[in-house]
């Protein structure tokens, strides 16, 4: 099942590229520069740019992929495959405006492909179905204490999970991942940004109706 194999950790980690994962002095340089420039540097073979991309996005891809498959080995393999592929294509990579959106899109494709190719496994039942992208409403602060608010929270959470999985996906990309509509359109493979806006508007409309009716 493993596409890229698990390898033993090397005895000596003095490989300059490996030790550079820890040095993040230079990471800072990229913190504020646009995705396009980071991607360009990565395309030119700059290892610091690669380290930055990996550090920032590998954990995010893992969390995102988890929505499609609950097999951690698959997710790790997908992340490996994606980066191995991208590194092998350095020099010919096309322009990318949002690294997060681009990586999410290919992660989604890769996970679904892997899940499909593992028909025999118990995880094969995971498909792009109505149960994925469940949403949780939680209040980190103590503000929400009153009975009324707890009830409200329960209502909103119930309503959220009555939405279609595509709607929930859009809501999570917008609010949890903080993506803009252009990025959402890219991840969800809409040809038009307006479709991304539309799906959010519809989701909100549905929510309002559901919450009102529940009262």
């Amino acid at each position: 099942m493993t596409f890229a194999p698990k390898m033993q950790k090397p005895q000596h980690t003095e490989d300059p590229t490996i030790s550079s994962i820890k040095l993040s002095e230079s990471d800072k340089k990229y913190e504020n520069s646009a995705d396009r420039d980071i991607w360009k540097a990565f395309n030119k073979g700059n290892e610091t740019a690669f380290n930055y991309i990996y550090r920032v996005y590998a954990p995010a891809l893992f969390q995102y992929g988890w929505q499609f498959s609950k097999d951690k080995n698959i997710l790790q393999d997908c992340i490996q495959n994606i980066f191995i592929y991208l590194r092998s294509k350095r020099g010919d990579l096309t322009k990318v405006n949002s690294i997060r959106a681009y990586l999410f899109k290919i992660m989604q494709r890769e996970v679904l492909r892997m899940v499909k190719s593992e028909k025999q496994s118990i995880h094969s039942s995971w498909d792009y179905n109505e149960r994925i992208f469940p949403i949780e409403i939680c209040h980190e602060t103590k503000l929400i204490q009153q009975e009324y608010d707890i009830e409200m929270k329960r209502k909103i959470q119930y309503a959220m999970n009555q939405l279609t999985s595509r709607q929930r996906q859009a809501v999570l990309l917008l609010i949890e991942e903080g993506m803009n509509y252009k990025e959402i359109a890219e991840v969800m493979e809409f040809s038009d940004v307006r479709s991304a806006r539309k799906i959010i508007y519809r989701a909100l409309d549905t929510l309002k109706v559901l919450i009102r009716n529940k009262k």
């Binding site: 954990p59 969390q63 988890w66 951690k72 992340i79 949403i135 949780e136 409403i137 939680c138 209040h139």
Partner: peptide, 13 residues
């Protein structure tokens, strides 16, 4: 409201 919406299925690498 924005801070209260989260993935229900969380996983950390």
């Amino acid at each position: 409201m924005i801070n209260s919406i989260h993935y229900q299925d969380k996983a950390e690498m």
